[in-house]
Design a protein around this nucleic acid. Structure first.
Lengths: 195, 195
DNA sequence: GTGGATTAATTGACTCGTCAATCAAGAAAC
DNA sequence: GTTTCTTGATTGACGAGTCAATTAATCCAC
């Protein structure tokens, strides 16, 4: 062996730098050199560890999705009432970790990435399905057969709020964003079970 | 003078080709050569008429927004009841002209474009503001002071449905999409005026 | 009408920059 | 002295934008 394991550290640094660069540029048109520079390494090293630019993007995506997933799991672990669980998911979606400039820009660009990279599409599909499944599960006791449709709506709404935030110049207003989705949830819950 | 005016025709063809290429690629990473080839002209001609790739993208964007705007105006012209007007806007948003593969992909990428091009951002802002204004106007008599918030929600939801459709492989289901948004609208209207 | 003059339309070939990916070699740990 | 870590230099491809040249329609003077 030689040296302490630098690989995991470097990989993490490069992934972080990738998210930051995408956030700063607002685009996937970021060069490996830029990413590497921000990570404090050479472009060659980034290629050495990841093999390709695509792989770097995928790693960044996995990271963002992993963080989100972990937070959701954490929040759900301590919420037991259906209503509270749904609110927990919404709150995590607009937490300070996830609902911030770079990450929002990253999400937007991941959707673009998914247009050309099957693996990226697959990752987003997993996120979408899990969100849908979580929401449906806890909506069932509240709105019965409408659970699926309402879950679909909430999911789309969350994505829409992200998309629109990407357009804004101002810093994300987590409170307002969460409130907006909660309002819609409120209205749907008031509808109750289907007639 | 010389020849019949070919310029407007060519411009339109190039704009069409641009939307198609973006739709096909799912990305803004399309070459001017590709666009020109699809339009049946040389890349040099595209540059001649538009000056730059950015200008081509902006023209494509203006075209998509103009079509959408025109359809909305048309639909609103024959709807007078608030409820009918709101439904008209939703229906247009998921009309066969707007809610189809290429145009959806184009929208997604226009959001990315807006991250770097102020003019693109401006155009999307105008779309957003007009939608918000239209919805708020007709929501006022139905939900009173909540009109603004509900309009914001509906707008975000529509954008979200577009975003999610961009991820799907299947052809867009206009009926289902419109139904989803209508369902949310329904729930919000049932809430009525704020207490 | 007719034949240049004028002007728009159109393009192939070229330039110049950029960037992903490679490689061979150097530095540093153990 | 072996292995990992790291990089500068290089390559090869690609693509936006330019330009000079060609084509062809229309006008006008006669």
């Amino acid at each position: 062996m030689a040296r302490i394991a630098a690989e995991p550290l470097r990989r993490a640094e490069i992934v972080q730098a990738t998210i930051q660069e995408i956030g700063l540029a607002g685009t996937l048109e970021v060069t490996v050199a830029q990413i590497a520079k921000r990570a404090g390494v050479s472009a060659a090293l980034a290629h050495h560890y990841f093999g390709s630019k695509e792989a770097i993007f995928l790693a960044a995506m996995r990271h963002v999705l992993a963080i989100y997933g972990a937070e959701v799991r954490g929040a759900l672990a301590t919420a037991h009432e259906p209503r509270a669980r749904i609110e927990a998911i919404v709150r995590v979606s607009f937490s300070s970790t996830n609902f911030r400039r770079e990450v929002i820009a990253a999400w937007l660009n991941f959707y673009v990435l998914a247009q050309t990279m099957p693996e990226a599409r697959r990752l987003l599909e997993i996120y979408r399905r899990r969100l849908h499944s979580n929401l449906t599960h806890d909506l069932r006791p509240l709105v019965g057969a409408r659970a699926g449709a309402v879950a679909e709506g909430l999911g789309a709404l969350i994505d829409g709020v992200y998309l629109r935030q990407a357009l804004r110049q101002r810093a994300p207003d987590r409170q307002a964003a969460a409130q907006l989705v909660m309002g819609c949830l409120e209205a749907e819950l008031a509808q109750g079970m289907p007639a």
